[in-house]
Amino acid sequence: MSHDHRHPRDQDEGPPCEHEIMSRAMQELLEEKGFLSAEEVRRRMELFEQEYPQRGSRVIAHAWADPPFRKRLLEDGKAACAEWGLDLEADRLIAVENTPQVHNVVVCTLCSCYPRALLGMPPTWYKSENYRRRVVREPRAVLKEFGTVLPENVAIRVHDSNADMRYVVVPMRPAGTGGWSEEQLAKIITRDALVGVTLPKVS
């Protein structure tokens, strides 16, 4: 029997696009000239996907548990992380704190700048035109779509990460977490809370 019906194609099937070809050619050239190896490239990708996303939650949990560290983090994010043993590589970090009066949210309207050495790769919604275009002009409506409704009296401060600095939000530590270990605290500090579209919750 002939096999003539069409199967749905996988998304990554088909001819590579121009940028994939350029990127592949560049990597092959760098490998050939001995600047880097395929293993090094793979390892970097693994770090960004597996290790780096854990860092942000751990740093903020530490800031919650250690007020002098929190103060230093707010003064100079990169220096405080370095002192704590966290190398943020090229990221110049500014930490901004939520208070009962002010809520912070981060966006990059020009592209997708994000503190990758602290949070890993940016989520798809962060890179979407919808989020980038709207969160700057109607932040409350966008936060509501993430399920975040702030009290009426709280002012919203939007941070456009449009040039050389990177941003992380220091959320408020929720009530009911007294006596928790940093490890326990880190579990409720999610990526989205560190971008400022949600708040940490005690389940």
Binding site: I94, V136, R137, E138, P139, R140, A155, I156, R157, V158, H159, D160, S161, N162, A163, D164, M165
Partner: peptide, 27 residues
């Protein structure tokens, strides 16, 4: 490079949020 704070009501003529909402950018 400076971090500059703008009032949202200054940036968007039709801004519907609070008067003390603001936006910061690097300029």
């Amino acid at each position: 490079l400076y971090r500059v704070r703008f009032s949202q009501t200054e940036v968007w003529a039709q801004y519907e949020g609070k008067a003390d909402d603001c936006i910061e950018l690097e300029v």
